[in-house]
Amino acid sequence: MAKTDTKANALDRRGLTDEQLRAIFRNMLLQRQLDNRGFQLNRQGKVPFALGSEGHEALQAGAAMAFERGKDILAPYYRDLGLALGIGLTPYEIMLSIFARAADHNGGRQFPNHYSSKHAGLMSFSSILAAHIPHAVGAAYAMKYRGENGRAVLVTCGDGTTSEGEWHESMNFASIHKLPLVMLVENNEWAISTPLDKQMGQPEIWKRAAGYGMPGKRFNGYDPVETYAVVKEALDRARSGGGPSLVEGTCYRFLAHSTDDNDMTYRTKELVAEARKNDPVPAFEHRLIEAGVMTAADVDALRKDVLRETNEATDKAEAMPYPQASDLYTHLYEGAWQPWQ
């Protein structure tokens, strides 16, 4: 970021208040801290699995700011820690999921990062890619059917997931019925080891929108403010009966796919280091300081606060009990059940 910029140039804030800008930044820091924590706990042998969204922080924090709590629905995927935090999940809830404790939203049944919270409007989803997208479309249909203007569904997925048939089927249906839906693709250029050019014939996913007769837009997912503006515009259109949109945020997956993956088997350190130069977290910090929204001291304090909150959440969640063996049998149907009656 060039130092000569005036404050106004340094930050086109797209209507965001100082407080909102700080909240976005806090979310980004928290994401990174919690991601690190998951990987640490895995290395310490305390949890069998963790997955990080480093590189997606700005995209998710920005998009979450466009989400209206208590009205909108979020249908995320497993890399959406920042979106989950941004719509109201607490670090403690995140840690419960990482530790697979009984008090976790899904009772320790699912992998970490598979949040669900009816209260927050976050739909339950599985590890099966794209399976949640038709669900989001169904939820949007329900809103439209009930005439609930002012509500919309935000559904997310990775670039790789757009290859699934269900992705296409969902886009098509949403556009036929002009549903209040925003399909947000987090294009981090990788699907585990598969790069974009093996995933699709041309790399700009937003260009598929016209084929479905809906608006499409691509934006810089390293810029949380631009992300906010694009997602908000699309959500507003959806909320007011203007139908669905396909928005594509570009970013990068800085870490391996998960703790089970070694990305050095398929990409080089140099490639990742190059991408890291655009790390959205320090970049946004810099912009906020530059624009006078925060001082360096504010940032320091915020970092400490985020670390404190993460530590507290970790300790509190770790101390909670596992589910019991008998919990394996609950919630299969409503009421008691036996396959033989």
């Binding site: 404790r101 320790g108 008998s326 394996l328 299969l332």
Partner: peptide, 16 residues
Amino acid sequence: PDVPAMGYAEPLEHEY
């Protein structure tokens, strides 16, 4: 047992 799959938490997998 007649459940869709084993849960993630260790006791759930163990029971399954």
